[in-house]
Design a protein around this nucleic acid. Sequence first.
RNA 1: GGCGUCUUAGCCAAGUGGUAAGGCAUGGGACUGCAACUCCCUGAUCAUCGGUUCAAAUCCGUUAGACGCCU
Length: 313
Amino acid sequence: MLKPLIILTGPTAAGKTELSISLAKKIGGEIISADSMQVYKYMDIGSAKISREEMEGIPHYLIDEWEPDEEFNVAIFKEYAKKYIQEIYDKDKIPIIVGGTGFYIQAILRDIDFLETKEDRDYRKELQTLAETRGQDYLHSLLKEVDRESFYMIHSNNVKRVIRALEFYKLTGKKISEHNEEQKNRESPYEYFYFVLTDDRENLYHRIDLRVDKMMEQGLLEEVKQLAGKGYHRQMASMQGLGYKELLSFLNHEITLEEAVTLMKRDTRHFAKRQLTWFRREKDVIWLNKKDFDYDNEKILAEIMNRIGDITI
RNA sequence: GGCGUCUUAGCCAAGUGGUAAGGCAUGGGACUGCAACUCCCUGAUCAUCGGUUCAAAUCCGUUAGACGCCU
């Protein structure tokens, strides 16, 4: 008997947070965040993190748990999310995964096996240097000998992925393409409901613009200044978050504040678009276009309840 | 009213006789340990009409619009 797992995701600024609270209250759920930025402490405004008050007493996990200079990634996410899901089941509550990082959702949903391979920092660095000195095509060609499928699948410009494929081979002696193929067909260990909250593109983009302006009014620049003051820099994954990277560029006198804001809006729109591409590809997703529900959360909630039906733990 | 300059895709823009660079935006896609990352694909016949020429976005003239200067 599979246990229920509810996923509430969607592009940024769709309104997931607000809906998640009413849903959690309604079904007796607790929330696990699947958001690669909200895990970090001190990054509140820019990551649109839910506040204590907004949580209305609903327990939240994987929010505000990491330091911005600590490493966090899918494998770590999966490990913790799995642990928290079990804890929630033990309390006879229903876990709700809320957040926009599709990769993370996939990892937990399909229980992807990331193997016990740690990353090999030195080897990565070595490959990076190789790409710079001998060129991306050369690095890419190395892949041809060890993993032909990946060689054809990964574009030579995508250095990051080429490096990972090479690293994976060195660490495991296996082809990452084969590993991916195996993982692709995994059955989910949950009885899941994959909701994607969205809106017409035009409205979504408009909401993004407004939200960026609001973040600036709320003091995002000050937040970034403080993070910079603590020594956090652009090499860290956390500081590559939307809003943070642009304002760091401004603080480094590379662009004007106005340009930074324009870029934030643009990059966020691009991000939302990428998220939609991701969800479109996922199987069994239940799309919830707000427009179809007259932008009424009650109606959306009713539809969710209808889809979920009777669930037991 | 006169003189001059300009007019290339949604925006910016190269090309000045040989068959339309590039950037941005937009749209689509990939993604299995950095994923709010990284990467791929995506468009015009050159304001208008006519002429010169084997060949014109490129030369000549017409009309329209924009800008500047002059009376």
